[in-house]
Design a protein around this nucleic acid. Structure first.
Lengths: 332, 332
DNA sequence: CCTGGTCTCTGAAACGTTTCATATGCGTGT
DNA sequence: ACACGCATATGAAACGTTTCAGAGACCAGG
């Protein structure tokens, strides 16, 4: 592998000069610079980031550790973060924990060892050992899609309690009194908050709430929940799902069993992913500004990696209900 | 930031011993080892990968540079690759080029500078400068979802020509004679091959083929293509899309315009992503074994990073047609 | 001719590891 | 008592950069 030394020798200059050509071209004479550049070209020299980074003490890479790339919502978050990072001239790598605590832990350890410049986190487990260890590493981090106490770190999130309320109220307004809530693992803050929102939205209405906890937050878990829903009697007339993937699964179960949506079962999802509008019955969903979430989080992170004393900030976006076919009032 | 030196001093041993505790615990006496370990714990020492890597000459990280994470197909590929990498005890990072040549180039440069252990590539542009430069870096790489000449590199792919034929024949068999093909950018090998497949599948049938080239391979481009399709006269009775996202977009356009699917317009997609079955009209689609694609590619890559002379291999999977509602023959 | 300043370039130190040859101490067999 | 081998610990070199103090060449002004 060709190093800076080879270039220096071939060009007949010192190592320092080659480094200058690469990093501060203006301080080296034009003739020398061109000679060195052409040798670099000819030899195919690529500088070694690990050496560079060792010297500098920190890297030029940001990381995004994300809950589940199988969820298009997080893909959009990633896209937003990428855009913002690129604008700052930083590279960003994406790591997918797939909601597994061990995978998350292993990535956190890797990122700490890599001395990454900063990390965008949407962690499964904020309190676990891996996270504790990571905190001690001193690498700046910002939470995405999760609110945390201000003294801990900055965060960018969407008000999940409000989102839950939005969905619950909408179902009340469309006349439903037996309502199911298909939630994901209560380990996740998002799920806990949406649960609180649903309960507060339904409070005092006299409506009956059944909560089903799905194993995961994916379509398959949604299908399972749908099957359970079908077995209930009396069967709820509406269901709110913590997630569009769950909602799509529930929808498939309904369609498969010949239950009409929304006439016999209204469905509300969460995230408003692109596929929600293209579903068998277009889904009513609680929309979150995924791109802005990612972009804002990345900017905050970049600000914290600066030299100034880190300004902790909590940004909270407000969700928005998008009404579609799946909760349209039917004449019957 | 605490380094190996701090640990050594605090534990009253030499630097080399600390290194041994971390890397070859068996060569150090139990008492010493425990003392060092507890100091490591206490100080929160995390070894610096860049130093380690500088010494070792190569890193312990694999990378996956993927065409478009917005496409669930590639998310599955990534999942497969991740599983295989983890089984080998290697970390893997995901980079998303979003089908942009410049983003791809910037990631390739970064990965070369990082001296990554190996890269899984599904590149936009196999022949561009960035790729040429990357080749010279000597970092092993394997193509995913793209076949290349054996002397160039290993690859794992799915037979796209066969996939195109499969779709075309299916439409012929269900009685269609005016068929549209909504393809993605011809820059992509996948698109070129599927085009060839369609033509060969239709050859000699007397069916009339109209090809529309979409700008991207996403739902929005699909909607655009759908609108163009609606404006054609005589309007085709069936459309094959190079991709399920395109197909979903086309489907939305049809539903929006009140065109019945499949009665007035049959639709076939490609990839069989999870959302295809949950669509407004469940989509017939050409299924590719995404997980196995990723897994196989990662294993091949790991094999090439070994010390043995690299064995170039071309693995080609066969696609499979999944028939659903969107091409069901109607009585009319 | 001397002084001081500007423009280029050089050489060496430092970054935090791993590795390897070497040193030390101890137990064992002769 | 001696030699030998084994277990354990040490110190220094090396990895490929960046940075910085300073050397050398040249020029303008006095």
């Amino acid at each position: 592998m060709v190093g800076i030394k080879d270039v220096a020798r071939q060009a007949g200059v010192s190592i320092g000069t080659v480094s200058n050509v690469v990093n501060r071209p203006h301080v080296v004479a034009t003739a020398t610079r061109n000679r060195v550049l052409s040798v670099i070209q000819e030899l195919g020299y690529v500088r070694d980031e690990s050496a560079r980074q060792l010297r500098a003490g920190r890297s030029r890479i940001l990381a995004l550790l994300v809950l589940d790339l199988g969820n298009p919502f997080f893909v959009d978050v990633a896209r937003g973060a990428e855009e913002a990072a690129h604008d700052e001239g930083l590279n960003i790598i994406t790591c997918n924990s797939s909601q597994r605590v061990e995978t998350e832990a292993s990535y956190l350890a890797m990122l700490a060892e890599q001395r990454v410049r900063g990390v965008l986190l949407s962690p499964v487990d904020t309190a676990g050992d891996a996270m504790q260890a990571f905190r001690r590493s001193g690498i700046p981090y910002v939470f995405v899609d999760r609110k945390v106490p201000a003294e801990d770190a900055s965060s960018v999130s969407v008000d999940d309690v409000a989102g839950g309320e939005l969905a619950a109220r909408h179902l009340l307004e469309t006349g439903h009194r037996r309502i199911a809530f298909v939630n994901g693992p209560m380990l996740l803050t998002q799920c806990r908050d949406r649960d609180r929102g649903v309960r507060s939205g339904l409070a005092g209405s006299g409506a009956e709430l059944s909560v089903l906890e799905a194993i995961g937050l994916d379509v398959t878990s949604g299908r399972d929940a749908g099957a359970r829903l079908l077995g209930m009697s009396p069967r709820p007339t509406a269901v709110f799902c913590a997630n569009d993937l769950l909602a799509l699964g529930v929808l498939q179960a309904m369609v498969g069993a010949g239950v009409r949506v929304p006439a016999e079962m209204a469905i509300v999802g969460y995230d408003d992913i692109e596929f929600a509008g293209a579903a068998a019955v277009p889904l009513t969903s609680v929309r979150q500004p995924a791109l802005r979430l990612g972009r804002t989080a990345a900017s905050l992170l970049v600000a914290e990696t600066g030299d100034e004393p880190p300004q902790r900030r909590q940004v909270v976006f407000t969700p928005e209900l998008v009404v579609r076919e799946s909760t349209r009032r039917t004449s019957s």
